[in-house]
Design a protein around this nucleic acid. Structure first.
Lengths: 146, 146
DNA sequence: TTTTTATCAAGAACTATTCTAAATAATAAT
DNA sequence: ATTATTATTTAGAATAGTTCTTGATAAAAA
């Protein structure tokens, strides 16, 4: 984690009467250092390396707090455990139905998926979640070999 | 449920060695007759009116079977229970963050949300799931009144 | 028929997540 | 400084949605 990013971490504002804590910092750092989309339990395991005393409940608390302040995104995949994602750029997720991997996919410039729907008149859009499902390139390749 | 729709139900093909059963028919009928997006438990309650002997586990089995054949869609909303949806037209879902309702929203003609992402080269797209979140018209109105 | 196979029902088991209560630590008030 | 307040953490219990197991039932195949 770069010096620069650490500064940014200090600046996270949890709101009046709420605090940045070592646990929240570790959870956030783990997420920022992960390119996959770890589950709460996976985050727990990774944070435990740095702070053995942390509990799973605290990881859930920290994740909720970080999601609440909007510096982390929660990604839900079917009935699987929630995954967490430190990439805040507007983006979508590609789910491989063969190997179950989840990867970030950028939006084409200027594209806004919420524009492709006929919204009910008067509705106010806050955000969107776009998941594209199929076979990832690797799984397509493997299948073609056979 | 119209005569016409009942015919269609009979035609659902569960694949070699699999059967259409009264339980699956009831589950499917309940879904086709619902404009909301019931959870498995809600489907269970509605089917129980028509077939008191059905069990919740069976409803789960039936829903899985129907999703598996592709005549029903499973909609996941955050950490909430899965919801099921008989509308197969390509469409998205609008989630009201205030009243927690979920409604179908049609796509604009010709719009394909998967076109708005930069897919990894060689990936094969099967389907997409687009959820737009915000305030539904009713909740926007209520808020403005105050 | 008999045999095989799919499905069902009931409840137990599982697992992700939330809740509870007591302990700790940071902040605010005195 | 000292005390009081409030937020947070921890560990484990509790909850809830879903899946699994087992024996029973029913449909299809032999």
């Amino acid at each position: 984690m770069s010096q620069n990013n650490n500064k940014i971490i200090e600046q996270i504002n949890f709101g009046e009467g709420h605090r940045m804590t070592p646990q929240r910092r570790f959870v956030y750092e783990v997420l920022m250092g992960s390119i996959d989309h770890p589950t709460a339990t996976e985050v727990f395991i990774r944070v435990k390396d740095k702070m053995d005393s942390i509990s799973l409940a605290t990881v859930y608390n920290c994740l909720d707090a970080l999601v609440g302040v909007g510096v982390v995104r929660q990604v839900n995949v079917d009935r699987e455990p929630s995954r967490y994602c430190g990439n805040l750029e507007p983006h979508a997720h590609f789910h491989c139905e063969t190997c179950a991997s989840v990867m970030d996919v950028d939006l084409k410039e200027g594209a806004d998926p919420s524009n492709s729907v006929k919204l009910p008149r008067g509705a106010k859009v806050e955000k969107f979640e776009l998941a594209v499902r199929g076979q990832c390139p690797e799984c397509v390749r493997l299948k073609n070999k056979k």
